[in-house]
Nucleic acid binder design. Sequence first.
DNA 1: CGATAGTTTGACACAGCTCAATAGGCGTGG
DNA 2: CCACGCCTATTGAGCTGTGTCAAACTATCG
Lengths: 247, 247
Amino acid sequence: MASALGNCVRRDIHSDGIPVLCLACEARHKGICGALQPEQLVQLAKSTSKRKVGPGTQLVDEEAVVERYANILSGVVKLSKTLPDGRQQIVGLQFAPDFLGRPFENESRLRADAATTVSLCSFSRSALERVMNESQELQRRLLKQTLKQLDDARDWMLTLGRKTASEKVASFLLLIARNIDPYSAHDRKTASFDLPLTRGDIADFLGLTLETVSRQLTKFRSEGVIQIENARHVTVHDLDRLVARAG
Amino acid sequence: MASALGNCVRRDIHSDGIPVLCLACEARHKGICGALQPEQLVQLAKSTSKRKVGPGTQLVDEEAVVERYANILSGVVKLSKTLPDGRQQIVGLQFAPDFLGRPFENESRLRADAATTVSLCSFSRSALERVMNESQELQRRLLKQTLKQLDDARDWMLTLGRKTASEKVASFLLLIARNIDPYSAHDRKTASFDLPLTRGDIADFLGLTLETVSRQLTKFRSEGVIQIENARHVTVHDLDRLVARAG
DNA sequence: CGATAGTTTGACACAGCTCAATAGGCGTGG
DNA sequence: CCACGCCTATTGAGCTGTGTCAAACTATCG
């Protein structure tokens, strides 16, 4: 869907020569593209293509050579690592309008999968690198996002290393509520959202088993902290109660 | 010791106007200062001071306002986070010539402590920011180091979430061997080093208890994988065997 | 309506935690 | 030089939270 091609760029449009592809794009505001001048957007858009993939689609293989980077326009992407014997750990979730890729390395050390339906705007590594050399502001944004991800990763290390199963699940629900639910931003007390991950995925994110995750969720439900419909839709009545349980 | 002042800068020295303070400094080669031109070094050196602190010294408090950044010249610094009830997790170890600080934020969300004797070269936040605006190359190095730290953090998430106690301890020994032992770089089979952390610290790094760490170490010793002297000095006879045990 | 994938629930086992006692290393002061 | 105290590390015994294995349940979809 919306398989726009890089070369469908109209310079004669009102908005100061911004490629049509980019006009309605969220990444142009909060994402890294916000750092770019119209001409640089045009430059980048030459190698750009959008695509939409279904849940479960593998986007990047662990240890694969990566030639294209992308912005996430919607959906949730999971980043994971695997031990030789198959044990898996999700090391990060990415939401729109995050940038997906590892500058300065051509091999990925992570696997990336679509957790939900995901739309992406991808562009070639070389195009990004070219623009990066010209734009101090782009580098700055990349640095900021990377620092943010490092903060998140370290927060999660505390969760993985020191929290109980119950606290882990509460922390996870909070993370999702804060990143997905459009309402919880306004009304700070309640939140309602679809879980983007299966129980198995949640377990891999929390360093638990799927059974333990399920038990903790039903415990929260029976205690009235959350409500669950169809196993996937969660309503949190009192976010503060969840915060208290997250440690 | 070596409490050199920022203003002891001699521009008439041979080496192209590089501050004396920086002449023998490792950070000028492998650290972020390597990105700077002599004039920029001079600029930064104006607010620079070196100091040496003992093991256990707190360098940065969690949630404190930070006005100075630093390069680590020698020693090991631990970065940690704490839960309200006191549970602690070490979220990273930093070695020379790492940069210590969080650009774009004036509050630290991490606590930093000297694990060993540490020497630091510190400079004001504002001075670094000024130089950063002028040096694309400095930003690039900062981005590179941050990406590296993010990779490390994610590797460790796999360790925390999915490895057994035994694998965790083996992973830790490998991490230290690779970062501290000067010899293991040449001779890939053996390594010998002082542990920079107490058993309690190691436990906080691995998400275990100090007793479990101790038991795993004695297990490795009795199996002949390592040798321990004075509880602190470790010799690894066959690094490959350790790698195998790290998962 | 059967098949498939995801989820819940139960019973039991065990890795790692807790609590407690002992041992070693090292500096200080008699 | 030994004795003492302090800190860190080791070792032991028992407990418990979470993992394992297995079965049943639910939702979705051709």
